[in-house]
Every structure is written in structure tokens, then in C-alpha cells.
Amino acid sequence: MTHEESSLRTKQALCDALKECMRHKPFSKITISELIKECNINRKTFYYHFEDIYGLLKWMLEQETFEVVKQFDLLVDYKDAFNFVVDYVSENSYFLNCIYDSVGRDELKRFLYQDFIGIVKKIISDYAHDLNVEITEDFEDFLCNFYTEAVAGMLINLFQHPEKIDKAKMYDYFSVILMNSLPAVLLSQK
């Protein structure tokens, strides 16, 4: 086994341990000691891979969601990307709620903002390119913040109240907004 494979296995084991701990206690109460004991590794190994438990959490979310979504062609495959994210949020609502309860809405959004905004920026940039529209950096930043806030709020509502969300309807609404409002806004800048 290569060093890279071994490192990935260790990181994944830590992610699994973190998820399991979050089934039983708030995120803010989970310690590195618990995780390393569960994985049968030493503290040095944990710190070799992650700066702290937030680094582990961020890596886990990036690997399980953001890196996967970035592989989709978001203008062509946005339905698949959307369904992947919605399914992930629904299936993992227990640990997302645990994080939310421990750090709060603003901190969770701040924590994930760079990943969300990167994905939204790519969608906006791809649409602008396809529509042959040039937008100012200031307006692009505004649109990125606007749509990122909307997506983040929608996903938080989904994992907080999965029983109240009709995923098919949510997708239909998302499609209407994405396919109609964003191109219209961009074309208004011509």
C-alpha cells in the first residue's frame, strides 16, 4: 500500500469515527482523543493529517460533496448534481444537524461558504460565457453571494426539516430559477 493510500484510509477512518460520534453527542463535545482511540491511531497521526477537528470536518464534507459536485458539468448535469446534493443532505441530516446545533447557522455557512461560492461562481461564469456576456467583477461577486446564500439556506432547511421538503418540487423550483432568472439577469447586463 502506498503512503497516499494509507493516508486516505486514515482520513476516511477518522471521518467514519467522527460521524459515529455525532450520532451520540454534539459536535462541540467530540474530542480528538475519542477519534484517535476509535481509529487506533496516535495523536501525532491525527495532527499530521488535520490541524484540528474542524479541519477533519471540512475535509470530510469536501470529499463527500463538494469534490463530487465539481466533477459535474453544472450547466448540463445540474439535475444530477442537485439530486446528489439533496440526497446527501437528506441521508446525512443527523450529522449536519449535529454540526448546526454545535456551531450555529452563521458559523456553518461561514465554514462552508468558500466551497459553495466556488460552485456558484462556476455556474455563473459558465452561463456568462455561453451567453457571451461580460459582467463586472463587482456584479459577479454580488450574484455569487446572492445565489450562495439561497442555496445554503435551502440546504439548511432541508437537513433541519427533511420530512417537510418535497424533493421533486424543490428540484422543479430550483430548475425554474436557475434556467430562467440567472440567464435573464446576465442578459440584462449586455
Rank of each mutant, 00 (worst) to 15 (best):
K121Q: 13
R110A: 14
Y78K: 01
L108G: 05
W59P: 01
W59K: 07
F116S: 11
V68Q: 12
L61N: 00
Y113T: 04
E67H: 13
L96K: 00
Y78C: 08
V69C: 06
T65L: 15
V69N: 06
K122H: 08
F116V: 02
D106P: 05
E107Y: 02
V85Y: 02
K122M: 09
L96I: 08
L75D: 02
Y100N: 11
D87S: 15
E91P: 04
L112Y: 06
S93M: 09
I99P: 04
M60C: 05
E62S: 08
I117P: 00
Y78M: 06
Q63H: 09
S90G: 09
D106S: 14
G104W: 06
G104L: 10
E107M: 11
D115V: 02
K58W: 08
V103K: 05
C98R: 01
L57Q: 11
E91S: 14
G104F: 07
V69S: 04
V120L: 09
V76Y: 02
Q71I: 06
F72E: 01
V103G: 03
Y100F: 15
L108A: 09
V103L: 07
F66P: 03
K58S: 14
V76C: 03
G55C: 09
F72S: 02
D73L: 01
V68N: 07
Y88V: 06
S93A: 13
D80M: 10
L75V: 05
